[in-house]
C-alpha cells in the first residue's frame, strides 16, 4: 500500500495548533482490515472541529482511541502519533497516561444518563473529577463545582449539587457532563454526539453553550456527529469520514458550499431541505459494508456512482484550495467526467 505524504500538515508549533493526530490506524482483534485507515486531524486553539459520518464510519472509535479508552485486548493500534502541545505520544506503544486524561483532554458522551452514576449526587461526581487532578481541599473543589454549574447555565446550582442524576432533565444532565469535563480546564474537549439524544430546542441551547465556552477558554473541541446541520451550526472545520478514512476536510463554509467528494455530495443530496420540499431525494445507493468486507483502495468505491478501476488504489488527501482537502481521483468531478442520461 502506498504511503501518502500529507501535503497540508504544517510543521508543529504553527498557528497555535493544540492537538494533532497523525496517521492513526487501528484494527479490532480478529479482523483482517483496519477499522481506522490512517487518518490525520489537527485542532487549533479555540477551533471546533466536527468529525461527521454515518454509523460505522469509525468516528466514535477515533474518539475512543484519542482518549486511550480502547481496551488493548480488543483493539490494536498499529500507528498514530498524538501531539498535545509539547507532548508527543506514540499511540501504538503507549496509552494515554491517566494524568493527561481529563486534565489535557476530556470527553462528553451521547447519553448523559448512562454516563453519570445514578447513585451519587451531581456534586459528588464533579468534586471527584476535580480532586482526581488537583491537590486542593474538598472545600475548594466544592466551590469550583458550584462555579462550573453556574458557568454551564444551570439554575439553582447550590440545590443541584445535592441532587441525583434522575432528578435532572436530559438537557441539564448534558450541562452537568460539560461542567464535569471542563472542571479541570482541559485543552481539548471531545464531544461524541452530545446533542443526538436531545430535542431540537435543547440541542440549540447546548450547541450555543459549547460554542461560547470554546470561544471563552480557547479550548479546542472535537465534535463527533452524524448531523450535517449540527456541523453547519457549530464547526469551524469539518472532516467527513467514510469507512474509517477521512474523505474530505476543510473549513466548514468551503466544504458545504463547494463539496468535492462524491460521498459528501451524496450525503448532502440525501438530506431533506427546508427550502426545497417535495420531489425525490438523491440517495447514496446501498449500505456501508462491514469492516471485513471493506474494499481495497477508496473504501467508498463500492457505493460510488463514479467509481472506476482506478479507485482500487487509495486516492491521497490532496488540496483543492487552501485548507480544503479531498481524497478522490476524479475531483473536481465536473471537470473529469460527464453523465449522459
Amino acid at each position: 500500500m502506498p504511503k501518502q505524504a500529507k501535503p497540508d500538515q504544517q510543521p508543529d508549533g504553527c498557528e497555535d495548533i493544540l492537538m494533532s493526530l497523525h496517521d492513526l490506524a487501528l484494527r479490532f482483534r480478529g479482523q483482517t482490515n483496519d477499522v481506522i485507515d490512517r487518518i490525520s486531524l489537527t485542532v487549533k486553539r479555540g477551533e471546533v472541529l466536527c468529525v461527521v459520518g454515518e454509523s460505522g464510519c469509525g468516528k466514535s472509535v477515533t474518539a475512543m482511541a484519542l482518549m486511550g479508552l480502547l481496551p488493548t485486548e480488543f483493539a490494536k493500534i498499529s500507528s498514530g502519533i498524538l501531539g498535545i502541545q509539547a507532548t508527543r505520544l506514540d499511540l501504538s506503544k503507549v496509552t494515554m497516561p491517566t494524568a493527561m486524561r481529563g486534565n489535557d483532554i476530556a470527553m462528553i458522551f451521547q447519553e448523559p444518563m448512562t454516563s453519570l452514576n445514578p447513585s451519587f449526587t451531581i456534586g459528588n461526581q464533579i468534586i471527584e473529577a476535580i480532586l482526581q487532578h488537583s491537590a486542593g481541599s474538598r472545600t475548594d473543589a466544592q466551590a469550583r463545582a458550584l462555579h462550573m454549574l453556574q458557568r454551564v447555565g444551570i439554575a439553582n446550582p447550590e440545590q443541584r449539587l445535592s441532587e441525583f442524576p434522575h432528578q435532572l432533565s436530559g438537557g441539564m444532565r448534558q450541562r452537568v457532563m460539560i461542567a464535569m469535563a471542563l472542571a479541570n480546564d482541559p485543552k481539548i474537549l471531545i464531544a461524541d454526539e452530545p446533542t443526538t439524544a436531545l430535542d431540537v430546542t435543547i440541542q440549540a441551547q447546548i450547541l450555543d453553550l459549547i460554542r461560547d465556552l470554546s470561544d471563552e477558554t480557547g479550548m479546542g473541541t472535537i465534535m463527533i456527529t452524524h448531523d450535517l446541520g449540527v456541523v453547519a451550526e457549530i464547526a469551524d472545520t469539518v472532516a467527513v469520514m467514510y469507512g474509517g478514512q477521512v474523505v474530505e476536510r476543510g473549513a466548514v463554509a468551503e466544504v458545504f458550499n463547494d463539496p468535492q467528494h462524491p460521498y459528501t455530495i451524496g450525503l448532502m443530496s440525501a438530506m431533506p431541505q427546508l427550502d426545497k420540499p417535495g420531489g425525490k431525494l438523491a440517495t447514496v445507493p446501498g449500505t456501508v459494508p462491514s469492516v471485513a468486507n471493506m474494499p481495497e483502495g477508496c473504501r467508498f468505491r463500492t457505493r460510488c456512482v463514479f467509481a472506476t478501476q482506478r479507485c482500487q488504489v487509495r486516492p491521497p488527501l490532496s488540496n483543492t484550495t487552501q485548507g480544503h482537502d479531498v481524497a478522490c481521483h476524479y475531483a473536481p468531478i465536473e471537470a473529469n467526467l460527464s453523465v449522459a442520461l
Partner: peptide
Amino acid sequence: LYRAAVEGGTVKH
C-alpha cells in the same frame, strides 16, 4: 452530475 448518475445516467470519464 451526482443526481444524474444516481438516477441511472451513464458515467463517462
